[in-house]
Write a protein that binds this DNA or RNA. Structure first.
Lengths: 145, 145
DNA sequence: TATTGTTATACTCTATAACTATA
DNA sequence: TATAGTTATAGAGTATAACAATA
């Protein structure tokens, strides 16, 4: 049976997705650097700015070991963007939450993500709808993250 | 003027692209790990397996500092996947080339990239053509990389 | 002088394993 | 015992600056 990756059309699409991935990261890291944040720090800040999360769950969302989150949150906390709060219902748990300053930074971060604007601006509303539907079907029901 | 990122449809598409990026990396890193390679090592190996490249140009392709490439190629060379060759026309230049073993590993790596098959298999040929065209227009003429 | 590649240094991210305090 | 978070450790990627060899 022929491999999809051997199909020229699929190969083109995979290459394009590779370009999208590269572009996504460039823009994300550049936006993060604007605030003197690393990519990982920006991701954690953006995540808990939505709502506070226990360290463990941050690790799950980032798909990394919990021990790594300690350092990332340490550095965010040292800059006053994040704070650790005790969980009254389980004193083992520490909930990481964005401070007012962190929330503001997260908002600026999101706004400065040109990726949302510039590349997609080349597409009409109908095109974006088509793209959304195709990507949805491609990604499938990953209700995971 | 309204920001595209505030548009719900664009927001959806950006979120989906985020999922694609995450998925792409998961699969890429997993495929690399199968051969005990890191993501960066796999990228360099895949790059120079196409054709040998001076250290400087590898750095340009990876958009990182040339000093980093030294270490990555060191580790690939230590495993016999890559070798440094002198450039007769300019004795400052060292050209990194995949060995026979490295070329084979690069091929296996490409074949084991399920990303090409599984998610795109959900799309018909017509869908993939549409997706290709949309992504092409979105990425634009980045003849750079 | 400018360029190529390397070295030295420091920081961050990453996984693993051992530790603590709770449960 | 099991779990949440941390610490300790080691390896890898990254940028910066200084260096040797060559242009």
């Amino acid at each position: 049976m022929p491999r999809a990756s051997r199909d020229p059309l699929t190969h083109e699409v995979v290459d394009l997705i590779g370009s999208v991935v590269a572009r996504y990261h460039e823009e994300y890291d550049r936006a993060a650097a604007t605030h003197s944040l690393t990519g990982a720090q920006a991701r954690v800040l953006a995540l808990i700015a939505l709502d506070p999360l226990p360290m463990r769950q941050i690790a799950r969302a980032l798909r990394c070991e919990p021990s790594n989150v300690t350092g990332i949150v340490d550095r965010l906390e040292a800059r006053g963007l994040v704070e650790r709060r005790p969980d009254p219902s389980d004193r083992r748990v520490k909930v990481a939450a964005a401070t007012a300053d962190g929330t503001r930074t997260a908002e600026q971060l999101r706004d400065s993500l040109d990726f949302a604007r510039e590349p997609l601006a080349a597409l009409s509303r109908a095109d974006r709808t088509t793209l959304r539907d195709l990507l949805q079907r491609m990604i499938g029901e990953h209700s995971d993250a």
